[in-house]
Design a protein around this nucleic acid. Structure first.
Ligand SMILES: Nc1ncnc2c1ncn2[C@@H]1O[C@H](COP(=O)(O)OP(=O)(O)OP(=O)(O)O)[C@@H](O)[C@H]1O
Length: 726
DNA sequence: GTCGTTCCAATTTTT
DNA sequence: TTGGAACGAC
């Protein structure tokens, strides 16, 4: 059979296996995704209906690629009928049909993080809690964490309150859910929670989906959260075939609720689960695997796995040292030119990874200067930009008039003389009369607190919206948005402003129009509702264009599942990678280490690791020390490209002089500064462990602000503080 | 209600 | 350093 031909023995076994739940646990590049792909193709060839297969991937892009591969394998367009996508997109699709059973309408909006945060923010204002010192985004994050652990408001309030912050969150949490519901909207977590509620409460529906999905396959299983796992447990029953694949060493979304425990529990929860282990890596050179292994073995908790390759030894990992982030970027550009010149590589073969998006700035600049074309994957995503979101908000309100967040966004965009005071009055009226804000606009003349002149503005706005509600079924999406953009005059507005930001916005609006036209071309007869759903669930990598010839830049998180011949891992310095704040626990550093492992294992032939001795952070120079991960790399597979201070020493503990070198020569080595600098870890006799977050003054008057454990921050005179460096 | 100025947190990572 | 929120003047 053709489908099995390009597989090794274990892979074949796993593809063909059909006697019950199975999990494929294997290291990077061992062909997990490949097995999953071939398995699906195999099942279809066996005569199983594609529409009875549910295949869950981590990104939409991965889903599309998998579909294409399957198409190539079975040569039939049947692949289109597979239920394939991310958990979020699949279950939002199911909710479009089933949500009415929960009291939502099927045109519900999907709130992304920003929408959710702004909902929280508006709630704080409405509840007069703006003085409570609550950061809306922290509140939202906390709520989201509970939701994806399936901890409901009552339970949270009862069992999980540890401090005053939790208490306030517990107060807000039920109202937050209520508001979402009233807005006929769901946040990302609801897209998983609501299906769980539905399937738990409606046995007929459960039966329907259980018989619908005869095969369930999950890629990147190590990064599923509790809600996702619960969904799987619900859907899988006696006859369902379930196959999951994952690598615990690549779990990098713990902060988003993902739990490796799911992998360990699988055997327990799914009876007679069979484990397959793939041990041959087909992606990388021996040296790269050695380097990756030397990193990951520093993590204590791991599922034991072997990984070997018959590929060549290849080149060592090359370390590039630089003085600051500009220098780093320049050296990367220089090295890329050399790679291309000497190795017949194309730009597409090279990727530059970073820990945090901000790092891309300096690199972009250097690449532009050196005339190296690049693309940024993810980052401040296109659909996240303000002007784009504003226009999308118009579309959303046309579909779902209860979507108050969207309505608030556009109420005064572009400016039409409806200010905050009037909006507050309108909301009060809406709450009092149990109306939506949208309905309130129809009765604006009853809201006597709003000035007459402004009532007229509201009326005008309402007429505009009504007109487009009317038009939305008559025009295509692109015609609709073009007409709207014209009507609103935003293009003209940006042009007249004439600043460089405005021009950027102008461009972005044009790009939005173009992208909608493209979207229409790719998905004929698509409905506005579906377009909006897709847009909210679009991941950064989903937009990645692999056709054009350019370098790829992205965060390591976005690089998951991808592979490139040459990989640059940049900013390998303490406090960047591992990026940690104040007091990180081992488990957080372990996740950073897994992230580093993911980064290395994306590479086929060559890894560069770069770091800088200083970089601008928050507008001031911060002196960096190189990442512990660099020291963890197996010396035998590492070379230094430009160590101006001699060869890397194998010493684990740095000497005082090394420390000096680390921090550069343009540094004042006076006693107190050497010892105390921003970022230094210190201990205090009374307060214990801490980290310096600011230093002011000098000499006897020098003050240091230290963040101690348990959220205690103190500003002390260094003369008396007697801080000891650790 | 709008515009300009000042002030402050942000640089985690994203479905 | 930057962008958004907050504040005050008109
Ligand atoms: N039996 C095989 N023969 C040749 N090449 C293979 C084989 N199995 C996998 N590969 C290749 O190895 C590379 C890695 O495969 P794949 O992406 O499926 O691995 P993975 O285990 O999912 O990796 P990761 O977990 O790192 O994302 C791919 O280029 C794939 O084509």
């Amino acid at each position: 059979m053709k489908i099995l031909k390009s597989l090794n023995e274990v892979q074949k076994e796993a593809v063909v296996y059909n006697s019950g739940p199975h999990i494929i646990v294997a290291g990077a590049g061992s062909g997990k995704t490949k097995v999953l792909t071939h398995k699906i193709a195999y099942i279809i060839e066996e005569g199983i209906e594609p529409s009875s297969i549910l295949a869950l991937t981590f990104t939409n892009k991965a889903a599309n690629e998998m579909k294409e591969r399957i198409l190539g394998l079975i040569g039939s367009s049947k692949a289109k009928q597979i239920w394939m996508g991310t958990f979020h997109s699949i279950f939002s699709r199911i909710l479009r049909t089933e949500a009415p059973k929960l009291g939502y309408r099927s045109n519900f909006s999907i709130y992304d993080k920003e929408d959710s945060v702004s909902l929280v923010s508006n709630m704080l204002e409405e509840f007069n809690m703006t003085n409570d010192n609550l950061n809306p985004s922290h509140v939202q994050h906390k709520i989201s964490q509970q939701k994806n652990k399936m901890i409901y408001p009552e339970e949270f309030a009862k069992n999980y309150i540890q401090n005053i912050f939790d208490k306030k969150v517990a107060y807000l949490y039920p109202f937050y859910n209520k508001r979402l519901f009233e807005n006929n909207s769901m946040d990302f977590d609801d897209l998983l929670l609501k299906p769980i509620e539905l399937l738990n409460s409606d046995s007929k529906l459960l039966a329907k989906y259980r018989s619908q999905f005869k095969y369930i396959l999950v890629d990147e299983f190590q990064d599923t959260n509790h809600a996702q796992y619960e969904l799987l447990k619900l859907l899988v029953h006696g006859k369902t075939k379930i196959c999951v694949v994952g690598d615990d060493a690549q779990s990098i979304y713990g902060w988003r609720g993902a739990d490796i425990k799911n992998m360990l529990d699988f055997e327990k929860d799914f009876e007679k689960a069979k484990i397959f282990r793939l041990e041959q890596n087909y992606r990388s050179t021996k040296n790269i695997l050695l380097a990756a292994d030397s990193i990951i073995k520093n993590n204590s908790e791991q599922i034991n796995k072997t990984l070997w390759t018959s590929n060549e030894d290849g080149e060592p990992v090359t370390l590039i040292k630089s003085s600051d982030e500009k220098d780093e970027a320049f050296l990367i550009a220089k090295q890329i030119k050399q790679e291309i010149a000497t190795k017949k590589l194309s730009l597409n073969d090279i990727a530059i990874f970073y820990r945090i998006n901000i790092q891309s700035r300096a690199i972009e600049e250097a690449l532009r200067r050196e005339k190296l074309p690049y693309k940024i994957v993810g980052g401040t995503e296109f659909y996240q930009r303000k002007e784009v979101k504003d226009l999308i908000a118009y579309l959303r309100i046309l579909i779902n008039q209860n979507d108050e967040e969207s309505l608030l966004r556009i109420m005064n965009y572009p400016q039409r003389g409806i200010g905050n005071t009037s909006i507050v009055k309108m909301i009060a009226f809406a709450r009092k009369h149990n109306l939506s804000l949208f309905q309130t606009m129809s009765r604006i003349f009853e809201v006597i607190e709003v000035k007459e002149r402004i009532q007229k503005n509201v009326k005008q706005f309402k007429i505009l919206l009504d007109k487009y509600v009317e038009l939305k079924d008559k025009l295509s999406i692109s015609e609709l948005i073009s007409a709207l953009v014209d009507d609103l005059g935003v293009l003209k507005m940006y042009k007249e402003e004439g600043t460089s930001e405005s021009m950027q916005r102008y461009e972005n609006v044009l790009e939005l129009l173009a992208s909608i036209r493209q979207f229409e071309k790719d998905n004929s007869k698509i409905k506005l509702e579906d377009f909006l759903g897709d847009v909210s669930l679009m991941a950064g990598v989903d937009m990645m264009d692999t056709k054009d010839n350019s370098l790829t830049m992205m965060t390591i998180h976005s690089s998951k599942g991808l592979e490139f011949p040459v990989v640059f891992i940049t900013g390998c310095e303490e406090d960047i990678f591992p990026l940690h704040r104040k007091f990180d626990t081992d488990s957080i550093v372990d996740e950073e280490r897994r992230l580093f492992y993911v980064a290395i294992t994306r590479a086929e032939k060559k890894v560069y690791v770069t770091y800088a001795r200083s970089r601008y952070r928050f507008g001031e120079v911060a002196y960096q020390s190189r990442s512990r991960f660099i020291d963890e790399l197996d010396e035998n597979v590492v070379e230094e490209l430009n160590g101006p201070y001699g060869k890397r020493s194998g010493r684990k503990k740095k000497s005082f002089y090394d420390e000096l070198y680390q921090h550069g020569y343009d540094y004042d080595f006076s006693q107190e500064q050497r010892s105390l600098r921003v970022g230094s870890r210190v201990t205090h006799d009374v307060f214990g462990m801490g980290k310096i977050i600011a230093i002011t003054g000098a000499g006897d008057m020098q003050k240091v602000t230290v963040a101690f454990e348990h959220d205690v921050t103190k500003t002390l005179l260094s003369k008396f503080a007697n801080l000891k460096i650790v």
